[in-house]
C-alpha cells in the first residue's frame, strides 16, 4: 500500500495564529501520477507546498513521503529525500549563470565536503566536471539554448528563467516535483509546450508531479487527479471531469449561483 503512494498526508493542519490555513487535510499522491492542486487565492495551496518541502512545520498531522515521515525534518534533508519545487514568483540565483544555478541544484547529490572543497582534490575536480556536463544536459532538456547557459540568470528572458528554474529543480534529482503555477505568464503556445514537457519528463525521468495551477485548461489537459482546496478545506477530489462538474467547486470558483 505505501509502495503505491509516494505522498501520504494525514490530517494536515496548519494554523497561523488564529487563522487556519490548512484544516485537517488528507491528501495522497500515487507514484508516477500527475496531480493538480487548485483553488481560489488564499485557499492554502502554497501553504500546503511549503509543508511538503519543510518550509513550514504542520501544527498537527503527519506527512509520509516515500515511506518516511518527513514532518520536522530540515528542508535540505527533505530535498535530499527527493522533493524538488519551483516557485510561483521565480527565485533564481540572479548573480549566477544559468549553468551555475543548475550546479547548485546538484549540491545534495555531490559528495565533496568542506575540506575537499578547499583542497580541490582530484575527486572534487572530476565531480565538478561531470556536474557541468550533466547541468548542460539538463538545461538542454528543459529547452534552454546553449547560448544562454553562461548568462546571468537575472539577464535571461522570462521564459528562459522558468526553464532554468525547472532544470534547477530537476537537478536535485526529485522523485516528486512540485510546480507552483508553472504556466503563469506563458502564452498559449508556450503553455501547450510546457504541458507536453511535463508529460515527457514524467515518462523519461520517472517523476511524480504535483502542480498548483490556475489555468483550468492545463489542469484538465495534464492531470490525472485534481484536489480542490477552499479556505483551507478540501472540497473536492477526483478526476478532472468529476471535479469540474462538482457543484461546490463551481461555486468556489464562480461564486454561488444567484437565486433566480
Amino acid at each position: 500500500m505505501t509502495a503505491e503512494l509516494l505522498v501520504d498526508a494525514r490530517a494536515i493542519r496548519k494554523e497561523f495564529g488564529g487563522l487556519v490555513a490548512c484544516n485537517d487535510i488528507d491528501f495522497t499522491v500515487e507514484r508516477g501520477a500527475i496531480v493538480s492542486l487548485i483553488g481560489p487565492n488564499g485557499a492554502g495551496k502554497t501553504t500546503f507546498f511549503n509543508m511538503l518541502t519543510g518550509a513550514y512545520t504542520p501544527t498537527s498531522g503527519e506527512i509520509v513521503f516515500d515511506g518516511r515521515d518527513i514532518v520536522g525534518l530540515p528542508q535540505h534533508k527533505i530535498t535530499a529525500l527527493g522533493i524538488g519545487r519551483t516557485f510561483q514568483n521565480i527565485r533564481l540565483f540572479g548573480a549566477m549563470t544559468a549553468l551555475e544555478n543548475v550546479l547548485v541544484g546538484m549540491h545534495s547529490r555531490l559528495r565533496s565536503g568542506l575540506f575537499r572543497s578547499l583542497a580541490r582534490t582530484p575527486l572534487q575536480r572530476r565531480e565538478e566536471k561531470d556536474g557541468r556536463a550533466q547541468a548542460r544536459e539538463l538545461l538542454a532538456y528543459c529547452g534552454l539554448s546553449p547560448r544562454a547557459e553562461q548568462q546571468y540568470a537575472r539577464h535571461l528572458a522570462y521564459g528562459d528563467q522558468r526553464r532554468v528554474e525547472v532544470a534547477r529543480a530537476l537537478a536535485t534529482n526529485p522523485k516528486l516535483l512540485l510546480l507552483d503555477e508553472p504556466t503563469a505568464g506563458m502564452n498559449p503556445k508556450e503553455t501547450i509546450a510546457f504541458v507536453d514537457f511535463v508529460r515527457k519528463a514524467r515518462e523519461e525521468r520517472g517523476l511524480t508531479v504535483l502542480l498548483i495551477e490556475h489555468d483550468m485548461r492545463v489542469v484538465v489537459e495534464v492531470s490525472e487527479r485534481v484536489t480542490v482546496l477552499d479556505y483551507g478545506e478540501k472540497i473536492a477530489e477526483g478526476t478532472p471531469d468529476e471535479v469540474t462538474a462538482d457543484e461546490r467547486v463551481r461555486s468556489a470558483y464562480l461564486g454561488t449561483k444567484p437565486v433566480s
Binding site: 518541502t53 519543510g54 518550509a55 530540515p74 528542508q75 535540505h76 530535498t79 535530499a80 524538488g84 519545487r85 516557485f87 527565485r91 533564481l92 540565483f93 540572479g94 548573480a95 549566477m96 551555475e100 550546479l103 547548485v104 541544484g105 549540491h107 545534495s108 547529490r109 555531490l110 565533496s112 565536503g113 568542506l114 572543497s117 578547499l118 580541490r120 572534487q124 565531480e127 565538478e128 534547477r168 529543480a169 537537478a171 536535485t172
Partner: peptide
Amino acid sequence: TRWGKAMRATAQNRDAARLMG
C-alpha cells in the same frame, strides 16, 4: 567549488538555497 557555490546561493536567496538541498 560545491561549498563556494552553496555559500553564494545562500547569500543570494536563502529559501531557494534550502530547496536545493
